[in-house]
């Protein structure tokens, strides 16, 4: 399973998001191997189709596929399970995406 973590330094929660990703992966018994990519320029944001920080992709698939295609150096809003907006995905969202990716691989 290929896990990528893309972030923009100006968004303060990226360290917490990466720690959360590692924690959930450990909880799921997955290897701790995460490709961490800092997105530093608008050009790079376009190239990587980066809709905001943090972005987590599993086997290339966004854990919360964005509805728009505005690529920019920005912080990203996640809608949590209870409807609240948060700058980082919940552990449940990450876990769900990891499990879905695993099912896709075995299915």
């Amino acid at each position: 399973m290929r896990v990528s973590f893309l972030y923009f330094e100006d968004c303060p929660s990226h360290e917490l998001a990466l720690a959360r990703l590692h924690e959930v992966m450990a909880g799921e018994g997955l290897s701790d191997d995460v490709e961490v990519i800092e997105v530093e320029t608008e050009e790079r944001a376009q190239e990587l189709r980066f809709v905001g920080s943090p972005t987590i992709r599993i086997d290339g698939q966004d854990i919360d596929p964005p509805t728009g295609s505005h690529y920019a150096l920005a912080c990203r809003a996640y809608q949590l399970e209870d409807g609240r907006i948060s700058p980082l995905p919940s552990p449940g969202m990450i876990r769900h995406a990891l499990n879905s990716a695993a099912e896709n691989r075995t299915g």
Binding site: P12, G52, A74, C75, R76, A77, Y78, I85, S86, P87
Partner: peptide
């Protein structure tokens, strides 16, 4: 509008 912290 767009910032998730502002929205949170």
């Amino acid at each position: 509008n767009h910032c998730p912290y502002a929205r949170a």
